[in-house]
Nucleic acid binder design. Structure first.
Length: 850
RNA sequence: GCCCCUGUGGCGGAAUGGUAGACGCGAACGACUCAAAAUCGUUUGUCGCAAGACGUGCCCGUUCGAGUCGGGCCAGGGGCACCA
C-alpha cells in the first residue's frame, strides 16, 4: 500500500468487471438453494437515470446481496418499460425514430446503472419494445380473448386532444390527461377492453392475503375497487309508461324519497329532450359543465323537472322526475331516488327546488319530528315516519326492505363497483400492436398464433399528429386469416400498463416459443420483495394483480398474487436556491417580483448559508422539495458517482432517513458518507490474522450487531442497519489489537458488503481472503454471545428516574429492591417517606411507589 | 366533504408500555501542522455555577410508569371525490 485511501475511480470499474466476467449475479432456476426474487419497478428509458432510481435500486440491491450471503439463490433482474409517448414526442420534436431514441436511452441508462455496481442478472435483460417480448404479450392477449376476458365495445371514451389518444379512467386526473394536462373530451369509439371487473371481488378479497403490503396501498386499492351493496328497484310511472330503475345503498330510507333524478344521458332524459327543447338545452348545459375539479367544487345542484311522475311503491305518492347534473350515467342505473333528509346532494337539490325534506332516521323514536340543522344526516340512527320500519336500526331496515322488494318482485339486492373495465386501446404508434384483423366479411378476426408477432413497421412518419399506423401505406393491409379476402389490421396499440402487467413473469422465465415456462414461474414467483414508488399504488399494481389472476384463471400459471411483499420508498428531495428579481412589466407599467432559481451545481453551500458561485453573493435557501427540473434542485447521479464513487452514493441512499420517507439530499451528507467509506477502509487495513487475545466486550458487541443488522436489512430498515455498522466501527476503532478485534473487522467487511460492495471487495482481497466477498457467507451469530452478563437497572421513585445500578444479570427481585433502597440518591429523594409498593422488572428496572 | 399517514434536539432520525434523544450531519473547543485540508480527541435537548427542574405538536384520560395505549383538538402531507 502506497496510499491509505480507497480510490473508487480505479477500483469500482475493476470489481464491476469481475462480477460481470464471473457472472456472479446470474440466477440459476435449477439451483437447490431456497429462492428469493427481489424486484424493483423497471424504469422507463427517459434518457438518464435520476436520483430516485438510484435510491430504489440501491435498496433492492442491498436486499439481493444480503439474500445471496444468507444462502439464497437470488433473482434480481433489470429491464426497460420501453413503449410510450415520450419516444413519439421525441420523434415529432427531433425527427429521430422512437426506436432509435429508446435504444440510445437504454444504452446510456444501463451504463449508469452499471457504474453503481448493482448485483443484477443482466442476462435476463429485455425491453418491452423487443418483438420477443411484445410478441409473447400478443399471444397472452389472444389467450385472454379466447377466455372471454377481452372484448370490444363502442363507448364514450376519454379523448386527449393534445396527445390524440384515448385515456383510461385512471389516467384522467381532475378532468385532464395525466400526461398532457389537456382538458379531456368525450368521444364515441370502438375500443378494446379487458374484463378486470370480472375479478373485482377476487381483487378485493386478495388484498386480505397481502399482509406484507403497506396498509396505505391496500386501502387505496380497496377504495378504488369501491364495492357497495344496495338495492336496485323500479319506480313505476304515474303519468308515463316506463318504470325507472334506481340504485340505492340506503333502501332503508325509501319512505324519505321525495323525488327521482336521472342522469343527462339517461334514456328517459333523452326521450324528454326529444319532445322539449328546454330539456335538450338543459342536457347540453350539463355536458358543457366541465369535469374539472374547480368546476365540480363550485357546481350547483341543478335539475330540470321533466313533468313526469313516478309512483312510490309503498305510499303511492307521486314523485317528480328530474334530470339532474349530479347523477352519473355510468354508475349504478344512472338514476337515483332523492332522499334529501339523509343525503347531502339530495338535500341541496331539494332545498333549491323547494321539495319536501322528510325525516326517516332519527337519534331515537321520540325525535321523529326533529328539524334538520341545514344539512343532511347520513349517519346511524333508528327509522321513523316509515310505517313498518319504525324503530328499526338502519342495518335491519336495509335488510328488511331488500327482502321485501325481492319477495314482492319490484327490486333486488345488488352489488355495484366503482371499478370499470380497463380500456387498453391507444391510438399510438409506439406500443404493442393489438393482434386483430378487421374483415368486412368475417368481422373481427384474431391474428393466427403462428403469425405472431405482429411486428411494428419501422418506416413511419410523425409529420402529422395522430397514429402513423393508421396512414401507413402497406402495413395495415392484410388478407383475412379466416376468408382470405382483403382486410385491415387493427391499428390501435396496447396501453403500456399492459406491458408492465406481466414483465415480472418474463424475467423469471423467457423461452423463445412461449411467454414463459410454468415450471420456472412456479420456482420463482411470487416476487418476494417488490420495491417502487407509491405513485404506482393503484394503476400498475392493480393491473399486474389482475393480469396475474387472469393468467391463473386460464390455467397458464398457478400464482394468484404476483408480489408477496411490497415496499414503497420515499422521494429524494433537495433544498431550493433562489433570488427575488424585479422585472419590468411587458406593458411598461411598473415591475413584477419574480424568482430566479439556481441549481445546486451553481451554488456554494456552507453551514452559514448559500452563495452563487458566479458572483459570490448570497442566495436564499428555499423549502426542501422533490427534485424537479422546474425547481432546478436536481442532482445528476453521474456527477456525484464520478466525484465520490458508487459506494459513498449508495451509503448516502441508505443512511439517516427511513426508506419509506423522503430523503433530503445534501452536500454535507454525501461528504460525510465519502469520509466514512475512507474511515472504514483504514480500519479494514488494520485487519491482522495473527492478532492474539480475547476482548469479550467487543466480541459480544460484534455478535449483537450481526444479529441486529440482519434483522434490520430483512425489515428494509436500512437506516438502522447503517447505524449498527457505525456503532461497531466506533467500537472496533477504540479497541486494542486482539483476535476479537480482527474478527470484528472481518465481520464489518461482511456486514458492509451489501451496501459498499466495491470497497469491501477491495478490502476483502487485500486482507487475503479467498474469492469474492459477494459470494461470502453472512457471518454466523453465536446466540450465547448476545446476552450481557452485566446489566444496567433503572431505579425510579414514583416513575421518575433517580438512579441506575450496574449489577450482574439475573439478580433476584428482592436483591434488586434492596440495592435500589440502598441508593443514596433514592434515599435523598424518598426523604423518609414510606415505600408502599415496589415494582421490579428483572434486569431492567425498580420502581418505588410512595 | 370522506378516508389514511406523520408531528421527538440546530438538522436527518433511534427507542418489545420500563433509563427519551442510539447512529449520523452540523457546531464548539483541543491535538497534529509554519498554515490549511485530512485525521484524531472532548463537548453538544433546554434552563441552571451546582443540586436539580423541565422536556417527544396541544388538552384530557388509562397505568406503579406513556414518545408508545384511549378520547378530543391543532398543524403538515397523501389518497379519493357529485359513486347514490
Amino acid at each position: 500500500m502506497t496510499d491509505n485511501r480507497f480510490d473508487p475511480g480505479e477500483a469500482d470499474a475493476r470489481w464491476q468487471h469481475a462480477w460481470a466476467t464471473e457472472e456472479t449475479f446470474r440466477a440459476d432456476s435449477a439451483s437447490p438453494k431456497p429462492k428469493s426474487y427481489v424486484l424493483e419497478m423497471f424504469p422507463y428509458p427517459s434518457g438518464r437515470i435520476h436520483i430516485g432510481h438510484v435510491r430504489n435500486y440501491t435498496m433492492g440491491d442491498v436486499l439481493a446481496r444480503y439474500k445471496r450471503m444468507t444462502g439464497h439463490e437470488v433473482l434480481h433482474p433489470m429491464g426497460w418499460d420501453a413503449f410510450g409517448m415520450p419516444a413519439e414526442n421525441a420523434a415529432m420534436e427531433r425527427g429521430v425514430h422512437p426506436g432509435t431514441w429508446t435504444r440510445e436511452n437504454i444504452a446510456t441508462m444501463k451504463a449508469q446503472l452499471q457504474r453503481l455496481g448493482f448485483a443484477l442478472d443482466w442476462s435476463r435483460e429485455f425491453a418491452t419494445c423487443d418483438a420477443e417480448y411484445y410478441g409473447q404479450e400478443q399471444a397472452l392477449f389472444l389467450a385472454l380473448y379466447d377466455a372471454g376476458l377481452v372484448y370490444r365495445k363502442e363507448s364514450a371514451v376519454n379523448w386527449d386532444p393534445v396527445d390524440q389518444t384515448v385515456l383510461a379512467n385512471e389516467q384522467v386526473i381532475d378532468g385532464r390527461g395525466w400526461r398532457s394536462g389537456a382538458l379531456v373530451e368525450k368521444r364515441k369509439l370502438s375500443q378494446w377492453f379487458l374484463k378486470i371487473t370480472a375479478f373485482a371481488q377476487e381483487l378485493l378479497d386478495g388484498l386480505g392475503t397481502l399482509d406484507k403490503w403497506p396498509d396505505k396501498v391496500r386501502l387505496m386499492q380497496e377504495n378504488w375497487i369501491g364495492k357497495s351493496t344496495g338495492l336496485e328497484f323500479r319506480f313505476a310511472g304515474s303519468n308515463f309508461d316506463e318504470a325507472i330503475a334506481v340504485y340505492s345503498t340506503r333502501p332503508d330510507t325509501i319512505f324519505g324519497a321525495s323525488f327521482i333524478a336521472v342522469a343527462a344521458d339517461h334514456p328517459v332524459a333523452q326521450q324528454v329532450a326529444a319532445q322539449s327543447s328546454d330539456a335538450a338545452d338543459f342536457i347540453a348545459r350539463c355536458k358543457a359543465g366541465g369535469t374539472t375539479a374547480a368546476e365540480l367544487e363550485t357546481a350547483e345542484k341543478l335539475g330540470f323537472d321533466t313533468g313526469l311522475r313516478s309512483v312510490h311503491p309503498f305510499t303511492g305518492d307521486d314523485l317528480p322526475v328530474y334530470i339532474a347534473n349530479f347523477v352519473l350515467m355510468d354508475y349504478g342505473t344512472g338514476a337515483v331516488m332523492g332522499v334529501p333528509g339523509h343525503d347531502q346532494r339530495d338535500f341541496e337539490f331539494a332545498t333549491k327546488y323547494s321539495l319536501p325534506i322528510p325525516r326517516v332516521v332519527a337519534a331515537s323514536t321520540d325525535q321523529a319530528d326533529q328539524p334538520f340543522a341545514g344539512e343532511a344526516e347520513p349517519g346511524e340512527g333508528v327509522l321513523v315516519n316509515s310505517r313498518f320500519l319504525d324503530g328499526m336500526t338502519v342495518d335491519a331496515a336495509k335488510r328488511m326492505v331488500i327482502d321485501k322488494a325481492e319477495a314482492d318482485g319490484w327490486g333486488e339486492g345488488k352489488t355495484v363497483w366503482r371499478l370499470r373495465d380497463w380500456g387498453v386501446s391507444r391510438q399510438r404508434y409506439w406500443g404493442t400492436p393489438i393482434p386483430f384483423i378487421h374483415c368486412d366479411a368475417c368481422g373481427i378476426v384474431p391474428v393466427a398464433k403462428d403469425s405472431l408477432p405482429v411486428i411494428l413497421p419501422e418506416d413511419v412518419d410523425f409529420a402529422t399528429p395522430g397514429n402513423p399506423l393508421e396512414r401507413h401505406a402497406t402495413w395495415k393491409h392484410v388478407s383475412c386469416p379466416s376468408c382470405g379476402g382483403a382486410a385491415v389490421r387493427e391499428t390501435d396499440t396496447l396501453d403500456t400498463f399492459v406491458d408492465s402487467s406481466w414483465y415480472f413473469l418474463r424475467f423469471a422465465s423467457q423461452p423463445a416459443d412461449r411467454p414463459f415456462d410454468p415450471a420456472e414461474i412456479a420456482a420463482w414467483l411470487p416476487v418476494d420483495q417488490y420495491i417502487g414508488g407509491v405513485e404506482h399504488a393503484i394503476l400498475h399494481l392493480l393491473y399486474a394483480r389482475f393480469w396475474t389472476r387472469a393468467l391463473k384463471h386460464i390455467g397458464m400459471i398457478d400464482v394468484a398474487e404476483p408480489f408477496r411483499q411490497l415496499f414503497t420508498q420515499g422521494m429524494v428531495t433537495h433544498e431550493t436556491y433562489f433570488r427575488e428579481k424585479r422585472v419590468n412589466r411587458a406593458d411598461g407599467k411598473g415591475t413584477i417580483l419574480t424568482l430566479d432559481s439556481f441549481s445546486p451545481a451553481e451554488v456554494s453551500r456552507t453551514s452559514e448559508g448559500a452563495t452563487l458561485k458566479t458572483d459570490g453573493k448570497a442566495v436564499e435557501i428555499g423549502r426542501v422539495l422533490k427534485m424537479s427540473k422546474s425547481k432546478k434542485n436536481v442532482i445528476d447521479p453521474d456527477a456525484i458517482i464520478a466525484q465520490y464513487g458508487a459506494d459513498a452514493v449508495r451509503w448516502f441512499m441508505l443512511s439517516d432517513s427511513p426508506p419509506e420517507r423522503d430523503l433530503p439530499w445534501s452536500e454535507a451528507g454525501i461528504e460525510g458518507c465519502s469520509r466514512f467509506v475512507q474511515r472504514l477502509w483504514r480500519l479494514f487495513g488494520q485487519y491482522d490474522p495473527q492478532a492474539q487475545g480475547e476482548d469479550a466486550a467487543l466480541s459480544r458487541k460484534t455478535h449483537q450487531i450481526i444479529a441486529a443488522t440482519g434483522e434490520d436489512i430483512e425489515a428494509l430498515s436500512f437506516n438502522k442497519a447503517v447505524a449498527r455498522i457505525y456503532e461497531l466501527t466506533n467500537a472496533a476503532e477504540k479497541a486494542s489489537p486482539s483476535a476479537s478485534r480482527s474478527a470484528a473487522i472481518r465481520t464489518l467487511m461482511q456486514l458492509a458488503a451489501p451496501m459498499m460492495p466495491h470497497m469491501c471487495e477491495e478490502a476483502w482481497a487485500r486482507a487475503g481472503f479467498k474469492g469474492l466477498i459477494a459470494d461470502a457467507a453472512w457471518p454466523k451469530v453465536d446466540a450465547a454471545m448476545l446476552v450481557e452478563d452485566e446489566v444496567t437497572v433503572a431505579v425510579q421513585v414514583k416513575g421518575k428516574l433517580r438512579d441506575t445500578l450496574t449489577v450482574a444479570r439475573g439478580l433476584p427481585n428482592d436483591e434488586l429492591e434492596r440495592l435500589a433502597l440502598a441508593s443514596e440518591k433514592v434515599q435523598r429523594n424518598l426523604d423518609g417517606a414510606a415505600v408502599r409498593k415496589v415494582i421490579v422488572v428483572p434486569d431492567r428496572l425498580v420502581n418505588l411507589v410512595v
